[in-house]
Amino acid sequence: MTGPLVETHGLSKHYGNLRAVEGLDLRLEEGEVYGFLGPNGSGKSTTILMILGLTEPTAGTVSVMGHDPTRNPTAVKRQVGYLPESVGFYGDLTGRQNLLYTAELNGIKRREAEGRVAGLLDTVQLHDAANQQVAHYSRGMRQRLGLADVLLKDPRLVILDDPTLGLDPAGIQWLLRLIEQMAHDQNISVFLSSHALEDVQRVCSRVGIMSQGKMVLEGTIEQLTAGQEGGGFEVQVEVDVTTDAVLTALRALPSVTRCEATGRVISVASTEDVRARIAETVLANGATPLEVRSRNRTLEEIYLRYFQPEEARA
């Protein structure tokens, strides 16, 4: 199939006066890892529910692999795996039994299902806990079981709603590796909603940023970071002691546009990469640079630019 996996036109969802999603145009191609970003309440989850046919759009259209999720939800759900924001399992069943039930609901034959479940439990490193009741699982284990559950049906597209929420850093790293594996080795497209920006930046080929139900920015990471005003370089220098002499000298450097000190950390913005000059200048003025690190304009800054005003309002 050549068309996009997911395509929406003017998709809107209103709850009374609240416009949860407004005029959303979204396009997801085969093989993409799409990061769907935005603060809480910006309409990410609602959009996902509409893609899956779990709620009906107020206006606009959704097409998932050519099917309308409201009219033909089973055709969509046969090929789309969905990990909800807070995934739940039957606590009185074991991890294995929960997965076998999902397999049965997907019409997978018992014998095939047992092999597949065992393999997936290995993949998500739950082999040892497979025969424990899910009621005794930790949050991270549930999340991993959720991923196995999603992969069980052998999906073409996986929709993950804020999967890093509540995971510890190691868990997040593991999850991201798994997402990369899914995308590269098994050619599964991924639609990932999140507010953990650093992570999304690492795995996503394209991101869209939502704010108050609207898509405010969309593109590849490079496109988004390149197009920022005041581009160029930003360097942070940690020094043993901040003196006025150092600051004055730094400001005097060519191509430096801004220089501010916060405690022992000095931020320097410049139009060129002047890290070596900065270190020299600090040393020459009687201070020791303990660390010099360059900060690219990250997604986070872009993100914050859109959401700071909103938080200030709140």
């Binding site: 899956l52 779990l54 939800p73 089973t74 055709a75 759900k77 046969r78 789309v80 795996g81 969905y82 909800p84 807070s86 995934v87 739940g88 399992f89 039957y90 606590g91 999902t102 609901l105 997907n106 019409g107 959720g146 559950d149 049906k153």
Partner: peptide, 15 residues
């Protein structure tokens, strides 16, 4: 309440 309903309805079955 268990959070299983949305997972259940994400499977290819009719409501």
């Amino acid at each position: 309440a268990q959070g299983t309903l949305s997972r259940l309805l994400a499977q290819p079955i009719h409501r």
